[in-house]
Design a protein around this nucleic acid. Sequence first.
DNA 1: TTTACTGCAAATCTTTTGCATCAAC
DNA 2: GTTGATGCAAAAGATTTGCAGTAAA
Lengths: 143, 143
Amino acid sequence: MPFIMIPNRDVLASLAQKGYRITPQRLMILQAIEEASGHISAEEIYEGVRHNYAGLNISTVYRTLELLKVMGLVAETDMGDGRVRFHSAGHDHHHHLVCSVCGHVIDLDAAALAPLSDMLIERYRFRADLNHMAIFGRCEECT
Amino acid sequence: MPFIMIPNRDVLASLAQKGYRITPQRLMILQAIEEASGHISAEEIYEGVRHNYAGLNISTVYRTLELLKVMGLVAETDMGDGRVRFHSAGHDHHHHLVCSVCGHVIDLDAAALAPLSDMLIERYRFRADLNHMAIFGRCEECT
DNA sequence: TTTACTGCAAATCTTTTGCATCAAC
DNA sequence: GTTGATGCAAAAGATTTGCAGTAAA
């Protein structure tokens, strides 16, 4: 009953290898995450996929996201708006500068926080998972 | 109907000055935030205050926190456990290294992130409000 | 006296869960 | 045929809101 789907070979292999099943719902949810330019919420994935497959249930989205998260295939970021957002872990790591006033999000590449990461390990023996990070503040326009 | 209360002159002055009223509930909520060593949730404030004043309602706690937040008297931090935590904005700024495995929280003083803050302003014109920041990762024990 | 604040109850919103059915392997 | 996945509905947990009564100034 599904439609077009762009399988991500690596992800599908990871799932199959651990005995998880490749279902149309999972394929469509994965596709929605891949296609999203960046951060996408469970509700947005749900709405997006329903355009092709109205039968999808929101709990399936949450269960799939939980699975992908545990497998390290997607990462989540809390942008402070009361819902969690996801992005493909395969994409290059990046961070988010979130403007508290206008909500604008500036992406920041991983390298920009390398010094911070190094300092935390050296001084606190704390291995920061900086792919989960959102930094709040004010953007240039809202200063 | 309240009990002892340790008024914080600055905060009380700020409230009165803007026409907000000084109520026993607000005094007790403020006291609870002041007494908390660090981050405290709405539910914890509620439970703490109820020891002295059983009549308090949780919605009053949320409304007071919202007011104090807008006035810049308290700051909030999302430690990733599904509820927001607060601390007095008057206290010296600090940050949190949150272990995703054991939940342990290491405090980090503001100075440690000054280089990051400078870099974000210089390179992105983004004024980070680092008092709202929690960094997730793994602590030494959980590596 | 005026009107901001509170308590109460109900509503919202996101995320989770139990269970019977269904479909991937 | 097995058993993991899905849909449905209901639950859970945090936070918000409408409203009428209460109390701070």
